[in-house]
Design a protein around this nucleic acid. Structure first.
Lengths: 196, 196
DNA sequence: GCTCGATTATGACGGTCATCATAGTAGCCC
DNA sequence: GGGCTACTATGATGACCGTCATAATCGAGC
């Protein structure tokens, strides 16, 4: 596994910078890549206007990359080793998190990685999103293995699970209705039950 | 089924208008909603600059809605009644179409409906995308029923199939690699084989 | 040939975008 | 206090956005 998450070395990371990253991640999920402009991020985070290029010398791409990293870490933390959990528990907790994403923001939020991928205008951010997708797949497969699924099956199950979630979130978001997501979630659960 | 596809009544639909719609649909799939501006659509389609608001009095939203309609119809045509096909054939042809979308454009294209949903800044276009998603689900479930799947199972299978495809296309597009998509496709095929 | 509708050309509007240069402030270490 | 670095303020740049008003052109039918 070559993926390395680069964090700031100074232990007191800038408040403003962190707020901007969190705001950018939220805006990506809620309104897409182009709407995640510096002005909206500043309005969302209350960060000072004057220090944009101090905190992000690489401009918008660097800020978006950082927001992808934050999103990436959120899901990894969700999946992190919880020994003794069953396959069904792993899948249910994963599905539950996506369901909360939809309902908590009243269908105004989706996956930041999807938003970046379909609207990326530079390879840099698209590749960063691809890296984050890879991290998610690895973490999900590891959780499934730890719950007792055979390694090769764990990988394909992780891929199906993540893909179906991403697609279902988009569709439920479009329809502003949990119907599509719940249907997919239930079907996925019956599928993984066959694996046990 | 209340969905009605409104087509132009004059049999000689404007060339320029049709070219713009096709170009907009392609741009949505390849570069997202914000990049689908009038200038890029005109450059893509060679349509005349002067008649934008003649063909689309409703502005960009109307053009995007028309592009969604064109995308919607493409998939419906793909699924249209082909009697005598097996479940596996239906699923394989559906998966195959998405695979071609990825490879034909060298991973520079995805689903226009997804692009619109995650970046919509008006309810009008989002709702139009939701409608198109619904049309796809209905058509896919109908094809599965015709291939012999029990009606209730056909609906949930259609939802899983479409969701997983959409998600897998996004991931393969991000990684510029068929890996994620092919893994998901294979897993889906083993799943539907269990239904027969 | 003329009319009249459909189509297109041209140019402008206010707004937002990402980026940057310059200058100012704040706080810590010596 | 002095100096150095981190951070912020301000304002400008050029480019593109969606929208629209006005006028020119085209083409078919009378």
């Amino acid at each position: 596994m070559l993926i390395v998450i680069v964090e700031r070395e100074d232990n007191v990371a800038s408040d403003a910078r962190d707020r901007m990253i969190a705001g950018a991640a939220r805006l990506l999920a809620q309104r897409g890549l182009q709407a995640t402009s510096f002005s909206t991020v500043l309005a969302e985070s209350g960060a000072p206007r004057g220090s944009i290029y101090h905190h992000f010398p690489g401009g918008k791409d660097e800020m978006v990359a950082a927001a992808i990293g934050a999103t990436e870490q959120n899901v990894v933390a969700l999946l992190d080793f919880r020994p003794g959990t069953t396959v069904r528990q792993v899948v249910e907790s994963f599905l539950g998190a996506w369901r909360v994403l939809l309902t908590a923001a009243d269908f105004h939020a989706g996956c930041a990685l999807v938003a970046v991928t379909v609207a990326a205008d530079t390879d840099e951010v698209r590749e960063r999103a691809a890296q984050a997708f890879g991290t998610w797949l690895t973490a999900l497969a590891a959780a499934l293995r730890k719950a007792g699924i055979d390694p090769p099956v764990a990988e394909s199950t992780a891929a199906l699970l993540l893909s179906a979630c991403e697609g279902a979130v988009v569709m439920s978001r479009a329809e502003r209705d949990l119907g599509p997501f719940d249907t997919v979630a239930e079907t996925l659960l019956t599928y993984v039950d066959l694996l046990a």
